[in-house]
């Protein structure tokens, strides 16, 4: 347990490029699916139990030391949208850059050398957590929390939503976030013995479809 490092990695101000992404919230706002705090909460709950769970399990597995290339392939298989795969690798490269300078060391340098085009962000998140002296639970929590924290922050900007309401949404999702992180770690441990197919493959088709539409449209504020 290295609690201060966990706070640093989970902090939304950690400079890894996340601020330019809405986690699908901008597309959902445009489509009228997020209009207020209640619909933001529903959106985030759905994202947490699908994309969030998958990301958390990938991060936990990477933190446990699973092979990054295999995890990256598993992430690809769980991400139908090419635009989202692209985004995930871009964010992975950016996180790796931030991680390498924040917690310098050979393991992350090797990752940058072997995978110059980048790895899915959750895989890098797990590796960075490991480099920071954190464990699989920490990595899973970071990924799960990030899966809802990003859309909530973006919605404050997109809808001028009351920031206290947005924070309240995240607080109400805390018990779900705990459960998702727990499930993710159990699955990651299974994957160590049974292979990456043991990782969850929950998906949210609407997130994938709207990510494609979002990537193709002009006049957007967030990259994804």
């Amino acid at each position: 347990m290295n609690r201060a490092a966990l706070l640093l990695l989970a902090d939304g101000r950690f400079p890894a490029g996340g601020h330019a992404h809405s986690g699908g919230a901008e597309a959902a706002v445009r489509a009228g699916r997020i209009t207020d705090a209640a619909s933001l909460e529903a959106f985030c709950r759905g994202r947490l139990h699908t994309a969030g769970l998958v990301a958390a399990s990938l991060a936990a597995a990477a933190a446990l030391g699973a092979e990054p290339g295999e995890l990256d392939a598993a992430a690809d298989a769980r991400t139908p949208s090419p635009a989202l795969r692209d985004t995930a690798r871009r964010l992975g490269r950016q996180l790796l850059r931030a991680g390498r300078t924040t917690w310098p060391g050979g393991q992350l340098d090797a990752l940058a050398t072997v995978f110059p085009r980048g790895l899915h962000q959750p895989v890098v998140l797990g590796a960075v957590a490991r480099a920071a002296g954190l464990g699989p639970e920490d990595a899973a929590y970071c990924a799960a929390y990030e899966s809802v924290g990003g859309p909530a922050t973006a919605t404050v900007r997109l809808l001028s939503l009351d920031p206290f309401d947005a924070t309240g949404v995240l607080a109400r999702l805390a018990p779900d976030t705990d459960r998702v992180a727990g499930r993710a770690v159990r699955a990651a441990r299974e994957a160590l013995t049974d292979g990456v197919d043991a990782l969850p493959a929950a998906s949210a088709p609407l997130l994938e479809i709207s990510a494609e539409a979002h990537a193709a449209r002009g006049g957007r504020l967030f990259a994804s």
Partner: peptide, 21 residues
């Protein structure tokens, strides 16, 4: 073109990762 998530100053000052890339 780099996208800035409605916060152009963040992208050039607080979190420069997308621009560095």
């Amino acid at each position: 073109a780099v996208e800035t998530g409605a916060c152009p100053h963040t992208a050039i000052r607080d979190d420069i990762s997308a621009n560095l890339e």
